[in-house]
C-alpha cells in the first residue's frame, strides 16, 4: 500500500486529506509544517508521494521542497503542492524548487486522487 506524507498546518485540512487518502487505500503520515516533515523523512519515512501546503509556519512548502530535494532518499519522490495560492510566480518558485504538480484549493477528491495516481511510481 503506497504511503503518502501530508504536510499542512491546518488540523482540519490534515484530517480531511487523511480521510480522502485512506478511503482510497493509501497509508498516510502527516506533519504540521516543513520542519516536522523533514524530521519524519530523516527518521526513515519513505513516502511514495508527498503532498504539501505552501503557507506553513517554521518551514514553508517551498523551503521544504528544496530541503527534500537535497536528500538522496527524496530527490525523485513526487511532490504535489496543494495550496490556496494560484499565482504564476508562486508556481514557478515551487516548480524551480522541485515540485512535481500543483493543485489549487478548493480541489475535488477525484482531482487529487487522479493527480496522485499519475505521479505514483509504476
Amino acid at each position: 500500500m503506497p504511503a503518502i506524507l501530508v504536510l499542512d498546518d491546518s488540523p482540519t485540512m490534515v484530517m480531511s486529506l487523511s480521510r480522502v487518502l485512506k478511503n482510497a487505500g493509501y497509508e498516510v503520515e502527516t506533519a504540521a509544517n516543513g520542519k516536522e516533515g523533514m524530521t519524519k523523512l530523516a527518521g526513515g519515512l519513505k513516502p511514495s508521494v508527498i503532498l504539501t501546503d505552501l503557507n506553513m509556519p517554521l518551514m514553508d512548502g517551498v523551503a521544504f521542497i528544496k530541503e527534500a530535494r537535497k536528500s538522496p532518499a527524496t530527490r525523485f519522490t513526487p511532490i504535489i503542492v496543494l495550496t490556496t495560492e494560484s499565482s504564476g510566480p508562486k508556481r514557478d518558485e515551487a516548480r524551480a524548487a522541485g515540485a512535481s504538480a500543483w493543485l489549487t484549493k478548493p480541489t475535488q477528491p477525484d482531482e487529487l486522487l487522479s493527480t496522485l495516481k499519475q505521479l505514483l511510481p509504476k
Binding site: 491546518s10 480531511s16 478548493p106 475535488q108
Partner: peptide
C-alpha cells in the same frame, strides 16, 4: 473535503 479547504482559505 471542500468545506475544509474553504475554511483553510
Amino acid at each position: 473535503f471542500e468545506q475544509a479547504q474553504r475554511n483553510d482559505f
